[in-house]
Each structure stands twice: as C-alpha cells, then as structure tokens.
Deep mutational scan, measured.
Amino acid sequence: MTEYKLVVVGAGGVGKSALTIQLIQNHFVDEYDPTIEDSYRKQVVIDGETCLLDILDTAGQEEYSAMRDQYMRTGEGFLCVFAINNTKSFEDIHHYREQIKRVKDSEDVPMVLVGNKCDLPSRTVDTKQAQDLARSYGIPFIETSAKTRQGVDDAFYTLVREIRKHKEKMSKDGKKKKKKSKTKCVIM
C-alpha cells in the first residue's frame, strides 16, 4: 500500500485542523484551538488504489514558523489553505509557496490551493482571484467548507493525484537520464 505524506499549511484560523478532522473523523470542530502540530493517518481508496494518507496539520501562528522547514522537508505534497473571508490569509499563500519551493529546492512541488469556509456569506476573496492565482502557479484550486464537508475529500484526493503525477514524471525523467548515460565512448 502506497503511503502519501501530505502537509496542510496556511495562516492561523483558516480551518486547516477543521478540514483535516472532517476528512479523518467526519465531524466539524467549530471551536478554535490553535494547533502546534498534529499528525493523522487514514486509509482510503483513490482511483481504485488503496493508500495510506499521513497528514500533518501544522501551526499557522507566526511564533511556530521555525518548525516549518522541518515538516516541509518531509512532506510530499501540500494543501495551501486560505479562508475566503480573510484576504490576508490569501496573500500569505505566496509566502508559504515560496518557502516550500526553497526548502524542497524545487520549482515543481505537488500543491493544491484550497479556499476554505465557502459556506460563509462574508467572502472577501473572489473565486476568480483564487483561480487566477492557482493557474499562475500551475496547481489545482478547490473551494471547501469544513463545516458542510463540501470539497473536503476532493481537496485531499486531488493532492494525492498531483503527487502521483509528480512521481510518474520524475521516474520518466530518471529513465531518460539513465538511457543517456548508457551511451559509451570508444577510443581507438
């Protein structure tokens, strides 16, 4: 069974824990209790493949930012979460993405942009803004509501699919490099 290491990042209060708990335990946590770091595991079937999701729910508070490099190193894919009623959390996505790329030393890291709290009427981040940002990053965008469960499975499952595509691409690139290195030079 394939294991996928997913990391949920975003500013404090955007609903990272609520999304994760909704996926794992099928219930909505409405009281806000700032996370330092929590880890969850769940076995699911995605596109006919049974897999184990190892999900790291991270601290959004700035005082825990020193811990970010460590979990970013171990993560295979990242859910970059903002709240649709919090423009600052949307603007912060850029910083999370840049930090992930720096730590992973790669421009090509599996990510999904997630606009959470889409059940709320007080939207300050337009869907088109988020779609445009995701398009500019070359990553999928999904709106979710941890409260109603809308888009929750889709967000995590899409990230797994992005990781699969990335692994497939990397193995193809690896095979191309191996083929090239088999060419021999004969000096007579």
Rank of each mutant, 00 (worst) to 15 (best):
T127P: 05
I46V: 13
F82W: 07
S122Y: 12
M67S: 00
G15Q: 11
G75E: 02
D38C: 02
V160K: 10
K182V: 09
A18D: 02
P34T: 05
D105Y: 06
L56R: 01
V81N: 05
K16W: 02
L23E: 14
D154S: 07
K177C: 09
G151Y: 15
Q150W: 05
T2M: 15
M111I: 09
K5N: 14
D38P: 02
T87I: 12
Y96S: 13
D38F: 00
D108A: 11
T58Y: 00
Q43Y: 08
V152R: 14
R123F: 08
D132Q: 05
R97D: 10
C118I: 10
G60C: 00
G48L: 06
V8T: 09
T58H: 00
A66N: 05
D173A: 10
K177Y: 08
Q25E: 15
S136Y: 07
L19P: 00
Q61S: 12
G75I: 01
K117E: 13
N116W: 01
E62G: 03
S181C: 10
I55C: 07
Q61C: 09
K104F: 09
D132W: 05
K5P: 13
Y71W: 02
V7L: 02
D33M: 01
L133G: 06
V44Y: 10
H94I: 15
P140G: 03
I55Y: 01
I46Q: 15
A11M: 12
A66Q: 06
T124R: 07
K175G: 14
K176L: 12
D132P: 10
Y4V: 13
T183N: 11
Q129R: 09
R41A: 11
K88P: 15
I163R: 05
E168G: 11
L113K: 02
K128T: 05
D119H: 14
K117V: 14
L19H: 11
K167I: 06
G75T: 03
Q129C: 15
E62P: 06
I142V: 10
T2V: 08
E76Y: 11
K16R: 00
E3H: 07
T2P: 14
M67G: 04
R149E: 07
E62Q: 05
F82K: 02
R102Y: 05
L120P: 15
D105Q: 05
K5H: 11
T127A: 05
L23I: 10
L79Y: 04
R73A: 08
I139H: 08
I24Y: 04
K169F: 13
E162V: 04
F78P: 01
N86M: 03
D47P: 06
D154I: 06
V7T: 06
G115S: 08
V112S: 01
Q25G: 14
H27S: 13
M111T: 03
I36C: 09
N116F: 01
L6E: 01
R149M: 04
K178W: 05
T124E: 11
E31N: 05
K88Y: 04
Y40C: 00
A130F: 13
D153E: 08
K176Q: 06
M111W: 03
E3R: 06
F78T: 01
R161S: 14
Q150R: 07
G60T: 00
D105A: 08
F156L: 05
I84W: 14
R102F: 04
Q99R: 03
Q61T: 07
D33S: 01
K104D: 03
Y96G: 02
S106C: 10
A130M: 12
Q131W: 07
S39I: 02
V14C: 06
V7G: 02
K182W: 04
D108P: 04
S17C: 01
V81I: 08
K177L: 04
Q150E: 08
V160N: 08
T50K: 12
G48A: 07
F28H: 04
G10P: 01
T158G: 08
T158K: 09
K117N: 13
D69A: 02
D119V: 05
Y157K: 12
L120Y: 14
V29K: 03
G77Q: 01
T158I: 09
M72H: 01
K128M: 06
R97S: 07
C80Y: 06
V45K: 12
M188T: 11
Y71S: 01
R68I: 01
A155T: 08
D119P: 07
L159P: 02
D33E: 05
K172M: 14
T144G: 04
K178N: 10
V112G: 01
V114R: 01
Q131F: 11
P121Q: 10
S122R: 06
F156C: 04
G10R: 01
L53Y: 13
K42T: 10
D132F: 06
Y137I: 09
N116V: 15
T2N: 15
V103E: 10
C51N: 10
F82V: 15
A83N: 15
E168C: 04
G13V: 13
T50D: 09
Q61H: 09
A59R: 00
C185T: 08
L19W: 04
L52H: 14
T2L: 10
Q131L: 05
Y32S: 02
F82Q: 06
D154L: 06
R135N: 09
L52N: 15
A155D: 03
Y157H: 10
D38Q: 02
A18T: 05
L113W: 14
M170N: 15
P140S: 10
K117P: 03
H95F: 10
D33I: 01
S136N: 05
L133T: 11
Y137F: 06
L113Y: 11
D38S: 02
H27G: 13
E3T: 06
R135M: 09
C118M: 12
V186R: 09
A130T: 10
R68H: 02
G77L: 09
K167F: 07
T20E: 02
V8H: 06
L79N: 02
Q22E: 09
D173W: 12
I84D: 15
Q43M: 13
P121E: 12
V103Y: 06
K177W: 06
K182M: 06
D38K: 00
